[in-house]
Design a protein around this nucleic acid. Structure first.
Lengths: 376, 376
DNA sequence: TTGAAAGCGCTAACAT
DNA sequence: ATGTTAGCGCTTTCAA
């Protein structure tokens, strides 16, 4: 039923290749002919079949977006921005949800590989080596994680964590807890590292609780542990956990921020709507989505992984041009943090992190180009 | 670079058609041969190219999901459920965001049509006639709207609205406002219709404010109008608006629920997290996503719109089997509603709906099969 | 049970 | 500037 290139050719009295050119290389066709072809195409409702085109050009004009959990409010703005940016460049996007499962992630990359020109891997939980290996199958841009040799866009949570900790230390807090995120999360590791350094530098003591599921439930489940730890302030892996924690604390009769100060990370919409409004490290999610798409398509346009043409270069070769972008974050102070209560609180009984073996910026770390802009 | 069917054929010493059969009709191939082929395929990391397959079978194993606004928290659970259900049936899903723009909707259907076996149109804002017309181009399942002759999955917001209104009337409210949703929203029309009837039946007076953008901002912007209307209770088109309204009311010094009761619709996660917790009409979004996918794929498996085969039947023909499913909703009473204040409040100055010309269940309405189950 | 051949809708050399 | 031809990776008659 749908009109094909042949229908248009017949209708406009030219060869199919002329029709093809009219769409893929208009400058090569006589304006007059072009007009006629276009008119016929319009009339017949003809639209080039992208799949057929992909078969020969090797470029599908699709991209994959693999998300840890669509229902986690951190992601929708990123998805939205990525989709919008992609479409603006005439790309469509497959969105897939892994439920935070590394196995599902891998399977999805394989499944999508043939149908897309590249995949945006958002908050992957799999190993670095697996990511590298998959990047040989299809161009990858990694979001929320750094993988040496691959284009990555990350948020500067280290800086955000420092700012948050300094904010808490300034307010007189000394015993501080960190609710860490899921196992395998690069972001969580960065936060922990930065938190350890910052708290130590400020003369405080950090208690790390986790790993945890990055959800509201994950946060509220920690209320009792937080209480027992005897801390006066908490930094959570994300806003959802922070909000859950506040709920849980509330149920235990602990008030935020009077008894305990709580800081989140992400600045999801929700964080302005709960009471108390959440102090949090704002993370430029939409910018991350846009940037990742740009990086993928730039990377991708350079390297035509065509069936006919230059072959599968670009997947490996232009690693040199591979950029790692880190987007700035920003501490947003609202109502969930206040001065530390005057009375000393009881002793902790959870793990206490002495500075430990983490290097802050050792020689092994990949160079980071800080080029991002905070979403306003 | 990626292995093709030919590589596998060469490696296993059979003709490509045998390899093809091994994957698409295994029972037609000798078990021994099949084993060998499978082994080689495995070894080479071969995966059938779906685009190439689609070219000849006419079935892409992709579906499109067109969403009014991904960032609106109503949608992510639906997207997630749809994607999950689709993938379970070996389908991938394109997600596209229209920004509530009817023009974008139409354009997206066209753009996606060739790459998918069907499109889920979620909360479309375009006209019925356009939807019908588009359904001739590609199988459509409409979510959150009823279009005669097309498979639809809707939420029974009429019932939910009645329950909400009865709840308010029981609590002594007589002056009630309805914050309507976006222009073009079927759901908004249904709510208004049901609200008018229910309030009138209960001896109350309904003030309709709108149309409005279905956002928090949309809600908070209405606070002043709500105050001037002199109502003691409000039903909002969705939770986001309800929450925004509560914020706005708060800024005007009006307390919820003491001064004004507020009811939302949807029961997004957020509604349990704001203070006061929102009374709302729970809407089974995940179930809607799953159901829509099922309807599309069932519809679709019946009708092979193959290039070679039976042609583009199914798009028009089996309208007879077209189902319209309406999912049950449920009023969830939380903390944003209370008894009407004893003192009479000032007179409204916004539009007052006398029963008006709306029929509740006129002859022109399509038959509705109520078959849904509320998501627990 | 397998192979041969045609072709899905399109693009890209190569001619003209 | 346009037509010819080959073929992307795959499925599907039709024969053998």
């Amino acid at each position: 039923m749908p009109a094909t290139i042949r229908d248009v050719a017949r209708a406009s009295g030219v060869h199919i290749s002329t029709v093809s050119r009219t769409f893929s290389a208009p400058h090569l066709v006589n304006p007059e002919t072009r007009g006629r072809v276009l008119a016929c195409a319009e009339e017949l409702g003809y639209r080039p079949n992208r799949a057929a085109r992909a078969l020969i050009t090797g470029r599908t004009h699709n991209i994959g977006l693999i998300i840890a959990d669509i229902a986690n409010p951190f992601f929708p703005p990123l998805i939205k921005a990525a989709e919008s940016q992609a479409r603006q460049r005439d790309y469509h996007v497959f969105v897939a949800d892994t439920n935070e499962d590394p196995i599902a992630e891998e399977e999805l990359v394989h499944a999508l590989a043939k149908q897309v020109d590249g995949v945006l891997l958002c908050s992957p939980r799999m190993s670095n080596s697996l990511i590298e290996q998959l990047s040989r199958e299809v161009p990858l841009v990694v979001i929320n994680r750094q993988v040496a040799g691959l284009p990555c866009v990350t948020m500067d949570v280290g800086q955000g964590t420092r700012a948050a900790m300094e904010h808490l230390l300034d307010a007189g807090h000394r015993r501080i807890a960190l609710l860490s995120g899921p196992r395998g999360s690069w972001t969580s590791r960065e936060i922990r590292r930065a938190a350890g350094v910052a708290v130590r530098a400020g003369g405080g003591e950090l208690t790390v609780l986790g790993p945890n599921p990055p959800t509201e439930t994950g946060g509220s489940a920690l209320a009792e542990q937080v209480r027992r730890a005897g801390v006066t302030a908490v930094l959570a892996y994300n806003d959802l956990m922070a909000i859950g924690l506040i709920e849980g604390l509330d149920a235990l009769g602990l008030r935020v921020p009077q008894d305990v100060s709580v800081v989140g990370i992400d600045d999801i919409t929700l964080s302005r709507l709960t009471r108390p409004k959440l102090t949090t490290v704002a993370t430029p999610t939409a910018a991350a989505g846009r940037t990742a798409v740009d990086m993928l398509l730039q990377h991708d346009s350079v390297a035509t992984r065509g069936a006919r043409g230059g072959g599968r270069s670009g997947t490996i070769d232009d690693r040199r041009t591979t950029a790692q972008v880190m987007l700035r974050t920003e501490l947003v102070i609202r109502d969930s943090t206040a001065a530390a209560p005057a009375d000393g609180r009881h002793r902790p009984d959870a793990e206490v992190v002495a500075p430990g073996p983490h290097r802050l910026a050792g020689p092994g770390r990949p160079t980071v180009a800080t080029g991002g802009v905070v979403a306003s």
